[in-house]
Computed example of a mutant assay.
Amino acid sequence: MNVWFSVISAVTALAGAWGGQWISARRDDRRWEREQRREDLRWDRDERRDRRDRTLRAYVDFLTKLRQYLSAATKMQTAVVNRSMGAGNEHDVVASEHEVDLLYHELAEKVAAVEVFAPLEIYARAEAATSFARELWGTLWDSWAAVNGPEPANADETVAAIKAAKRKAWEARTVFVEQIREYLDG
């Protein structure tokens, strides 16, 4: 009986040690898995925050450049209106076509960033705002040519055409901003 008692004790001791190791390993595995899930969640959260920051930066950059483009249009509008009213001269143009093209290309770069980061409907609004801003400049250049031509254009018609084009551009900008706000709130 003494031998059997020793064998049973040894087997029990080994089983206890192995069982303890197995329990400890399972506990460590569960802890590691829990930490890994927590780390994955942290990475996902950081990635979403970074993407949101890049998206917001793209929106702000686009709106800033659009505002610059439209502000230059407002200065040009003043020159056109002054000229159509008989004040000023043909040298009052506030921006060359080259400068306007540079502004437009900078604006187009910002639209490209919006395209990359924004949902399709917001990108479409940015494209619409850019298109209406470009049309505004087309109206301004046409009006400038008309008021400086051999037979100056009617001031009221010129101002009305410019105001209509400007209103469309600003409305498109406003719709873009509202779309962004809805997206960010939702």
Rank of each mutant, 00 (worst) to 15 (best):
T158S: 01
E39V: 11
E106A: 06
R173F: 13
A112C: 02
F132M: 03
E151P: 03
T130E: 08
N89C: 09
V11M: 14
A165K: 03
H98R: 04
A161V: 03
Y123M: 04
S131H: 08
S131W: 05
A15R: 10
W4F: 15
R52A: 10
A124R: 14
W144R: 01
A73V: 12
E109K: 09
L63I: 08
N82S: 14
W22A: 15
D92K: 01
R42D: 13
I122D: 01
V116H: 11
S96Y: 05
D53I: 13
R67E: 08
Y59H: 02
E115M: 03
A153L: 01
L102M: 10
A172S: 14
S6P: 03
A172L: 06
S24D: 07
Q77V: 05
D61A: 07
W170V: 05
S84H: 00
L184G: 08
R45L: 11
T158Q: 00
R125L: 02
T74H: 07
R51L: 15
W43M: 13
A165L: 04
R134C: 07
V175T: 14
R26D: 09
E135G: 07
F5R: 15
Y183R: 10
S143D: 03
G16N: 07
E121T: 03
E151L: 13
R83K: 04
V175S: 13
V175H: 13
